[in-house]
Design a protein around this nucleic acid. Sequence first.
RNA 1: GGGCGGUUAGUUCAGUUGGUUAGAACGUUUGAUUUACAUUCAAAAGGUCACAGGUUCGAGUCCUGUACCGCCCACCA
Length: 928
Amino acid sequence: MKTEEKISNGVNIPPRYDPKETEDKWYKIWEEKGYFSARVNPDKKPFSIVIPPPNVTGMLHMGHALNNTIQDILIRYMRMKGYETLWMPGTDHAGIATQNVVEKKIAKEGLRRQDLGRDKFLEEVWSWRQEYGSTIIHQLKKLGSSCDWERIRFTMDEGYSKAVLEVFIHLYKKGLIYRGRRIINWCPRCQTALSDEEAPHKDLDGHLYYIKYPLKQTSPVKKSKAKKQKDDFVLVATTRPETMLGDTAVAVNPKDKRYKHLIGETVILPLMEREIKIIADNFVDTSFGTGAVKVTPAHDPNDYQMGLNHNLEIINIMEHDGVLNSNAGDYQGMDRFEAREAIINDLGERKLLEKTTPHLHSVGHCYRCSTVIEPYLSWQWFVNMKPLSLPAIEAVKKGVIKFYPKRWTKIYLNWMENIRDWCISRQIWWGHRIPVWYCVDCGIKKGKIKEVESGPDKSKSYVIRDPDAIVAHEAPDKCGTCGGNNLIQDEDVLDTWFSSWLWPFATFGWPHQASAQSKQKNELEYFYPTSVLVTAPEIIFFWVARMIMAGFEFRGKKPFSDVYIHGTVRDDTGKKMSKSLGNVIDPLEIINEYGSDALRFSIMSLTSAGQDVNLSKNKFEYGRNFANKVWNAARFIIMNLDSEKINSDVCLCSKKIDNLPERWILSQFYGLLEKLEKSFKQYKINEASKLIYDFFWHDFCDWYLEFSKLTISDPDTQIVLYRVLEKILRFMHPFLPHLTEEVWSNLPQREGLIINAPWPKMQKELVSKTADKQMQLIIDLITSIRNIRGEWRIPPGAEIECIMKVTDKNIKKIINDNRRYLQKLAGISEVKILEKITKVKSSASGVIGKIDFYIPLADVIDLAKEKERLLKQVDSFRLQLKGLEARLKNKQFLKKAPPQVVESEKEKSKELAGLIKRVCDNLEALRQ
RNA sequence: GGGCGGUUAGUUCAGUUGGUUAGAACGUUUGAUUUACAUUCAAAAGGUCACAGGUUCGAGUCCUGUACCGCCCACCA
């Protein structure tokens, strides 16, 4: 009913903004009308962003919400600024993650992927992706993301896969990709190799086990050499006792006096009863543990290196799943951790476990499933990264690519300068299969391939060492050496990041046919390098650094100019949001409850550039309330507009507007425009959102709209209300796209949709310091009078009188011109301006600038209380003055401080002294 | 072991190239409701800017160190 009554101007706008009514509606219109699509346009400058492709298994979380809101704001902002904007969307096939999901799914039917076989299993994955793969895309749309969806890419698309193969072959031919036998990070659960980046180290409370390795009794000569020491055994310390089963030496530092005499001696490896040598190696740190280290070449990278150096036997004791194999003697068939306990037990029983101490150490974990990584010796494919890193280092050092905030530069460079070879082969099925074939016949002949039977069905498979590789785009027909056609393809697939690092150009269809000047080729030329990459700190090494290397290697150009690294989304106690902690806030729930715009606005305002953000659900009220405020202010204006009066294209700067509030709000608006530009340039988007919020809520609504109510039908007020509203809506559009589009559609005069409206242009002539200053005086007066009303509990209905003492003619004019505003907003019945005031009895008083004002309050005033109030004021003034005077007495200050600072200090102190005197006079008057 | 970030009002956070009365939001207190909005309006209270030194006429801001919290990196058997 309330709504019905308020219909005015023929418009009916509900008093409460309902996002549900508008968000999907406008998104559909934008998408259908093609506002998100970008094409080569030589008349415009390009602005492009490639989305960090979410995992195809992904569900929208707050991190995505933050990441994509930032990108959408930048895209919408630049679109309005007249750039040809492209936001390239897509998803990542996420090898291990996706395979895990599908494996879990078929496990419900009691199946393992091996039961299906490779081809069948991949079919399952593809059909899973068909069904669920666009979930995250729908969710991104709910957020309002203005991606060019016609271009959506997937890292397993046919074209994209070609790029991956091309790159593999290119690097192989260049000698940068090789197959090698190395200790890599092995996840026994996912049963694949991982790169160093995929095995983050976490501190774990473990133990250091001190184990006695008995010395084999040798010649008595040597034994006597040892002082009093009982050389019955060598004590070694280890955190992973189960690996001792694969020990093939004990190492000591050659300089270590404790052990010098034992070098070359033999010890008996407990439990296995194997004779192993004591070797000397500089690697051994004399200060750690006992100074003697067990050497397990197959299960520790350092030990492996020592094994190579000393030509030690390499004994692998473990299967792919972390279960000990036949090399583990009695422990065969036990899981690695089960074996650890058994071994400790057995050693204890044999009195070979000297002691166990608690030991905090850092252990690698699988970044997909958190299983403890096993350093594992195997044949894998690697990329030699060093040569690729050089241009990538230089580009960042020279500022060709800039990080925001700057501090990430150092972190990037540190990693890049210490870059290590990248293990790119994965023992999974979902991914880009390595384009390498081997000739079985040649391989067997050379002893590089062994045929084995495995599985219950005794099917044939091959153990491949390092036979000659045939690297090709397509499966070759026959072996180039023997002409045979018994060829097998490498079983492994490539690391998912081996495809992601090509994202900025592979999404444009690279590599293109050399022949034609294809459309895609033009697009790549036009949109690449992209403008900015917006991402989270976790993937600087995984992705950002590698994209930079790939950009230079394959395109000869940087992939992007700026890298904006935003913070991590945390819960209100500062913990990272994660499903396992159960502290996630679901963005979709927030969208449902508060609206997508509220989510966007809140998260952006709360996140200062590059800083982590702590969220709790109630914080989204901030954006919801703001959206509602915008809605209602617009509602008020629209209902009061007279379309004839606003029907004017006149430039506001040429139109003479005299009224102070109008001049002031225009001045504020264009001041805001300038500040916004600055904030955007530095990616300080939260600053921009706060500027808009403050201007709109406080300057525009709290002050200007209230002022405007007095002159609402004046043509000047009408024009200013309308123009400022429609322009501020444009500022808001990147943050609140749906709401602003809806409000825009309610404006009586508008062109097209706001998504395409040009960003307002600066009009310097409208920025007026005079207007700002004059208005500030009026605002201060009103605030001061309101304060008195509050202090004296004067009911809002009660009108009071205000007597002002003003001598300055200009100020008198300002007050006179604007007295109606004072009366209305401070609730004053009459403003009397006098040049001299002899005495105002029983009144509250105040001093604002050059004005003394008095409010007679005979009925309510408590003189003692008023005295106290004034005294408090004087005290605060005096305190300030004291500081100022001290400074002005300081000769150093007068000598060294810039003259304008000294000058302004002098002025201030004069002003303060004046104020103090006037308040004191008022106090004196109270006494009489 | 190395590096980075943080420490400002009860809470969550801003704070430009150092400039003198350190801001906001939420919460609290007081008052307001027929006339855009209670998802509102007006007003108030609330801070020795983690600590200790230093540079400077002047430090929340720059430098050094300390403490606590968080993060990243490292071949810590």
